[in-house]
Design a binder for these strands. Structure first.
Lengths: 241, 241
DNA sequence: GCAACTTTGTTCCTGCGTTCACAAGCGGCT
DNA sequence: AGCCGCTTGTGAACGCAGGAACAAAGTTGC
């Protein structure tokens, strides 16, 4: 029972699959991936580290080092083949096979996530929904019927859920987490404002709305004392779609 | 126009308000705050660094260092007065005054956020909702009518919005962002999967579902080759509420 | 009132991540 | 075919954050 939420290392033992990749680098790789697929759709077949870094908002040296973790697939004097690079990053991130997702807690947020359809981008199909509320059980949300939280272990094992998303109130999060772990789920995305206690082989990512807002509040608090920035210097000709 | 999303420093100039606080520390302080308010509700008036650190899942030395940023308000041999500490952390995080929040993009996620009511914890009232869809404009969501995105600059200036939350599709995010900035908003929470370009005095926090899932996928990919963990060693006697 | 224990606040140190800078390598041009 | 310029990949330095250890300080018990 360790507490290791967020930040920490990747491969404490076993450095066979390339050398250990820093966690921050993994996050950036996911961003490169998105930029790359977007560029490929626009017909771009080759990008230099400078271009890609610019689009991702990072230093080009950082980008090159990140890409060196996945292997050396660039051509000197030219740049990176976008298609090849996508392929290799996807492989490193384990996106070649699908990851079945379960959403627990079908409140406002859970409802929103369930309706995402195929979930952000491809490769993360939602295959199970759970809630405590008996009135919700059986009702389809986003085309999938809700099951009772008591059935989490069986259903998760049966449907081979790899990622559990916790959208319950804080008070229920730990219990739900234990049930997911019991069902063999070893990756958890936690939206509840609590630090989950999990076995060391379970990975938890926490997304905390309140913390994000408070960090923004902090930066707002220590600004130049000027009250508010000048109003509307940008043309309000909003042409969205 | 800098790109500085996430990570970076706090007070590049001006170290008047205590010394520069590392960004990571700010995030942890928000967590301490939650733990403390929870403990106060249970009648706890004093906590040692060891206790508080345990509850927050961090090292006690780290906690003491974090608290030293807000000032020295502990009593040696005793610990910290929970009420006093909450007060000082709230002051540092700028939570003493309210931060008016605007939500842009009333889709699944925007709908969920608008319905949060007073928004996570207290101090972040949602005072404006926006969408492009004419059919949505005027309809109240969570008790607040939706306005058209074209009116973002005026409405934000008028209602003194300090934090803008972007829940639009990626394609609209940058335009919406520009409109918020035009309305004087200098803190943005971005749920759209794009790196926003903003003036250097605007702070952007990004919450990216796809990236979080892909990071989990990465850790899942490089595990002990064993297929799935053993099933249900935990009693499924789920007694939630 | 004194001594011993407890807990804070801080200094030092270690280690990781980011950045800089350069050598190696590849394509294009003459 | 050889040279030139561009871009990658990596070795080394820098800087920050986290952890350990210690000194200062305050409280409790005698």
């Amino acid at each position: 029972m360790t507490v290791h939420q967020h930040g920490r290392y990747s491969t404490p033992v076993e450095d066979l699959p390339s050398r250990a990749v820093p966690e921050a680098a993994v996050g950036r790789l996911a961003i490169y991936l998105r930029v790359l697929t977007s560029m490929i759709e626009q017909g771009v077949t080759t990008m230099s580290s400078e271009e890609l870094a610019g689009a991702a908002g990072v230093n080009s040296a950082t980008l090159r080092k990140d890409l060196s973790y996945v292997g050396s697939y660039g051509t000197r004097g030219v740049g990176y083949d976008t298609a090849k690079l996508v392929e290799h990053i996807e492989q490193l991130l384990g996106l070649t096979r699908h990851h079945s997702v379960a959403v627990v807690g079908i409140g406002n947020l859970g409802h929103a996530l369930a309706n995402y359809g195929g979930f952000p981008d491809r490769g993360f199909p939602v295959t199970a929904l759970f809630d405590v509320d008996e009135d919700l059980v059986g009702i389809p949300v986003g085309g999938l019927p809700v099951d009772h939280v008591n059935t989490i272990p069986e259903v998760c094992a049966e449907r081979e859920v790899t990622i559990g998303v916790i959208c319950t109130p804080a008070s229920a999060a730990q219990i739900v987490c234990d049930l997911l772990v019991a069902g063999g789920v070893r990756c958890i995305l936690n939206f509840a404002p609590v630090m989950l206690q999990v076995p060391s082989d379970v990975e938890v990512r926490r997304v905390d709305l309140a913390v994000e807002l408070q960090i923004l509040s902090f930066y707002q608090a220590r600004r130049s004392p000027g009250p508010r920035a000048g109003a509307a210097p940008v043309d309000p000709v909003a042409v969205i779609r």
